[in-house]
Design a protein around this nucleic acid. Structure first.
Lengths: 243, 243
DNA sequence: CAGTGGTCTAGACCACGGG
DNA sequence: CCGTGGTCTAGACCACTGG
């Protein structure tokens, strides 16, 4: 427990997470922060940082004066929308076997909306990647990613685009995805989407996630739209009192 | 800058937020953490805590070795889904004048699903509160809150239920809302909802937020379903790299 | 290279909970 | 009352950015 680089805090966090899911703590009570600090030979602040993150993720509840406790409800939540998680993992955590189908990769000129969102000249060429994610062979997510061609530093093959976008970016573009702003939009599946997602021909409501992704320098580098079949995947999040 | 109770961190945070929205920082650059620490007479850790929260909320971007900067994109985002915010404020931040209409408050026995979600006996009485939120007089959110009758410690009048639920709970139930787990569900408005939300008679997609609210002791205390007209309100959130 | 944010420590005091 | 988590401090070292 003395290596660097995963940070100490991160090591403590995964250590505790492991013990939590293994139900190692009697009656859901986690040892006091001071006890953990001396047990793991780190300062109490480091323990507190780790516990704060576990609390944010819903694994733990803290009560001043009483103690820190395992959050049974948090353990049941499969997937949270407030983190960028590869869709394969999201699908697997819902109990399905994930698969990806790369439908098409094409070059298009940016329309004015896209150009404005990504700080481009109108008409600048953009790579559009169409992907379909399957859960146990049923289509569940259709994803459309717009990536300005100017970011591509290397020639690419279709296989490159099977990976999650945040793995593609460092390799092909020497860019990194730091965060994204996402809009959540409900829609009635139009015919072309019913087709892509193999929906029954009755009108169906879908969730769309429209995201602009930024690099650590705070420049917009991509736009992504994802359409979810919510009968197979449920999007969840934890909301907290603001102040 | 020496009072307690809003915490020092919280005071520093709102102080900085104020200066950010007033565009006080040249070229979006925020002074270094050490400078802020001596300027505000607090330790660097306190400054860092405040900046971390501002970063979480999207107001600020930090880059190791370079500095801390105002996030222009973050300032444009009106409302974030990952915090519990009163719907009135959400509506106002979208540029409308909010209003609330209390439609009805009735007592019902809990069905089995509700009983399981809230740890109740099947059939236990539950108060169901129906509220409609208006933006410039147009209905935008229909909210249905299920509150077990056993929590009510005092007699209530309809007026009590005009306030946000997290203000009602302390007064009427001596309870506090700590956090909630929310499912995001798209749906096609059924006739009764089209009626409530004054939707046109063409099929319309809506967002539903289905929440279970917990108190600090981690007991479920209420269930709430809210239906949003997304043509007037857009729900947004910031997603970050998990690790 | 100097200056920035990132991490960690040791120690202090406070506010709250439960016995 | 004691033990818990909540807050804050002062100081240290590291990793990274930029000129």
């Amino acid at each position: 427990m003395l290596k660097r680089s995963p940070s100490l805090t991160e090591q403590v966090k995964s250590h505790l997470k492991q013990r939590i899911v293994a139900s190692e703590f009697e009656a859901g009570r986690i040892p006091s922060e001071s006890d953990l600090a001396s047990e793991l030979n780190v300062s109490r602040n480091t323990i507190r940082d780790a516990l704060s993150r576990l609390e944010m993720e819903g694994f733990v509840v803290r009560r001043q004066g009483a103690g820190t406790f395992v959050n049974q409800h948090g353990l049941l939540v499969k997937t949270r929308l407030d983190e960028i998680v590869p869709y394969e993992i999201l699908i697997r955590e819902h109990g399905y076997e994930p698969a990806i189908k790369l439908l098409c990769v094409e070059e298009q000129p940016a329309d004015s909306g896209l150009a404005a969102a990504l700080n481009l000249q109108a008409g600048e060429p953009v790579l559009v990647i169409h992907k379909l994610f399957l859960a146990d062979a049923s289509p569940v997510i259709f994803n459309q990613t717009h990536l300005p061609l100017k970011w591509l530093k290397r020639p690419h093959t279709p296989d490159d685009f099977l990976a999650p976008i945040y793995q593609i970016l460092p390799k092909l573009c020497q860019q990194e995805l730091a965060y994204s702003f996402s809009e959540i939009v409900p829609l009635i599946a139009p015919p072309w989407l019913m087709d892509r997602l193999a929906l029954p021909s009755t009108p169906t409501a879908l969730l769309a996630l429209e995201e602009i992704g930024y690099n650590p320098d705070n420049d917009p580098i991509l736009k992504a739209c994802s359409y979810f079949r919510d009968d197979l995947l449920r999007l969840r999040l934890i909301r907290r009192q603001s102040q």
